[in-house]
């Protein structure tokens, strides 16, 4: 599945300082549906190059990290159980920075 992933608020530092990633996510376990939960573990394995604890806590994102799926708060679409579709844009923003 082709997806565009964006990292902001400092999270880009965890993935080689690259903010935007165009990725192709392979489904695991032969499932044909990709949920946010699946995507998160894929991201953790494939994109996060350092300090994974700044991005995830347990099987969800660390408290303080906002997640938007197609510019919509993932809390509205079920958080981890949000279903992803081809060409979706997922944005991760860390709120934990000084301002």
């Amino acid at each position: 599945m082709q997806l565009t992933l964006e990292f902001g608020g400092g999270l880009e530092l965890l993935c080689d300082s690259k903010k935007i990633h165009n990725v192709n996510v392979e489904q695991q376990n032969g499932e044909d549906k990709l949920t946010m939960k699946g995507l998160l573990s894929w991201v953790k394995t494939n994109l996060i190059k350092e300090r994974p604890e700044m991005f995830m806590k347990g099987d969800t994102v660390r408290p303080g990290v906002l997640v938007l799926v197609n510019d919509c708060d993932w809390e509205l679409s079920g958080q981890l159980s949000t279903l992803l579709e081809e060409k979706d844009v997922v944005v991760f923003i860390s709120t934990l920075h000084g301002g």
Binding site: G10, L13, R51, G64, L66, I93, T95, G98
Partner: peptide
């Protein structure tokens, strides 16, 4: 959270990196 959402939706330009002298990886 709302400040970040506001800034994101309005595409406001801000800077977010830890001060280089502050110790790494702590919150």
């Amino acid at each position: 959270k709302e400040i970040v959402m506001y800034a994101y939706f309005k595409r406001l330009d801000y800077f977010s990196t830890e001060c280089i002298y502050s110790p790494n990886a702590y919150r």
